[in-house]
Design a protein around this nucleic acid. Sequence first.
DNA 1: ACAGACTTGTCAAGAGTATGTCCTGAGTCT
DNA 2: AGACTCAGGACATACTCTTGACAAGTCTGT
Lengths: 279, 279
Amino acid sequence: MIRIGEVAKRAGVSSEVLRAWERRYDVLHPERTEGGFRLYGDADVARIRRMRALIDEGMSAAEAARVVRGAPAAAAERPLPLELAETLERALLGLDATTAHDAIDALLGAVSVETFLRDAALPILHRIGDRWAAGEITVAHEHFVTSLVRGRLIGLARGWDRGSGRHALLACAPGELHDMGLIAFGLALARGGWRILYLGQNTPLDALASVAHNERIDLVVVSSVDPARFTAAAAELRTVGRHLGLALGGAGATAELAKKVHARLLPDDPIAAARELAG
Amino acid sequence: MIRIGEVAKRAGVSSEVLRAWERRYDVLHPERTEGGFRLYGDADVARIRRMRALIDEGMSAAEAARVVRGAPAAAAERPLPLELAETLERALLGLDATTAHDAIDALLGAVSVETFLRDAALPILHRIGDRWAAGEITVAHEHFVTSLVRGRLIGLARGWDRGSGRHALLACAPGELHDMGLIAFGLALARGGWRILYLGQNTPLDALASVAHNERIDLVVVSSVDPARFTAAAAELRTVGRHLGLALGGAGATAELAKKVHARLLPDDPIAAARELAG
DNA sequence: ACAGACTTGTCAAGAGTATGTCCTGAGTCT
DNA sequence: AGACTCAGGACATACTCTTGACAAGTCTGT
């Protein structure tokens, strides 16, 4: 718990503004010391940053406050409606696009995007992938599911390049086609205030550096589920890592390789990885 | 929700004009703050952009307002607003997702999905593909564009599995990753009354038959831009063609091969192909 | 071709709103 | 003791509001 001056410094606003926001809008409720000094926690700092980002985008302070107030900072995240998730999984396996879309709509209405991704979409994709590997379902099912879910995730990504936060470039390693985790990571990161430039599957790394430079990228994130894809591209990764912020993600990322190419290692879970960077 | 000045900046019109349009035509109904300030949402910005696009094309403000208000006054298919298409292409090449999305919104507001696909999306993808092949742009651009446009197309595909028409299964040949044409074809076919089951990129053919049977598929469409992908899978294609309706599409499809596997040959242009089947 | 009517973007004036900053004197923390 | 914080009123500045008017352009009928 920190006092107002320190918060102001960290969030990049004056302490007068913090007091004004608290007085005028209903966004901040810091605790108090016995003597009456405000004490802010991490969640407060996050809200303040969010306010600032929204205002930088052109929103009025009152409006930004309304938005921030409306999105209770994960304070009381509802649990995932399991029935809906099961409906979704059944619909996907039954090649029933309409029911699947309706279930996704309902899920997104019930819980946050992060929860949807972490507790529904990604586990379902994982299970379906496993069942495909085990020969329990056909490749047709796997393809149908991937295409439908990817479409929805990319739909959620609308606007993730906007804002004033740090700028991340996301790409799958060369040869890597699994991009769901990376998209989910991008969605979670965007909700943490980052701006996303998404290049997707199977991205050759030779073009990254110039793009990253032109677009003023703060962090390049490369993902792969297969360690071999990383090792095959180790030389190029090292080049990127020397000149830019670099992070490796996905099941194929190892601490050893990350160290070798001067990269940060991200946790397997995309949502946790995003939270780690945004926090 | 943003205020009038910000809207004006984003949509490229003066705030006076926005107020005048609201007063004179019945196009805009922004909410108000307690103090009486207008608050606009994203949908409003899109409408304003569309108004502007229509006016730039030569329409009178009143007429543009009627169009935007949703009165389908002129049922005749309008030609594609070239400026918007150019804006879209520039935005895609500039890695500017927000502008690209806005341009797509405006285009879809101005013309039918078929026209958008045939005269804007597919030509742009084609040109960008050519420029990539020629080394004029990096692979990063090509990936960015593909990912963004595929997301929008799949978004348009919502509901294409519904209805009571004939049922088509769409898949790219094994190894084939170019699926934009196939998606565009599916969209056009769906608007012709067909129901679509979409499996997407790189679909092994061995699973098609059982799925097609279970889902009561009337026609299987396999697409590839590379003839080699078809010849490599000729045996399996023949099996499919013997038991089911089969059609081959994409630049890789040849009359010779189609005949050999008992398949129908579709025209190169996805929209023309769909029209041929639906007609 | 031309007067008259309509269309439409722009401007103005005066009042009100929104919001970051400043001020003051007293109190708190280390 | 010195640095920081409190409340909350008061400003200054930048926007926005409404109403009404105006000028340039377009259309109409004669």
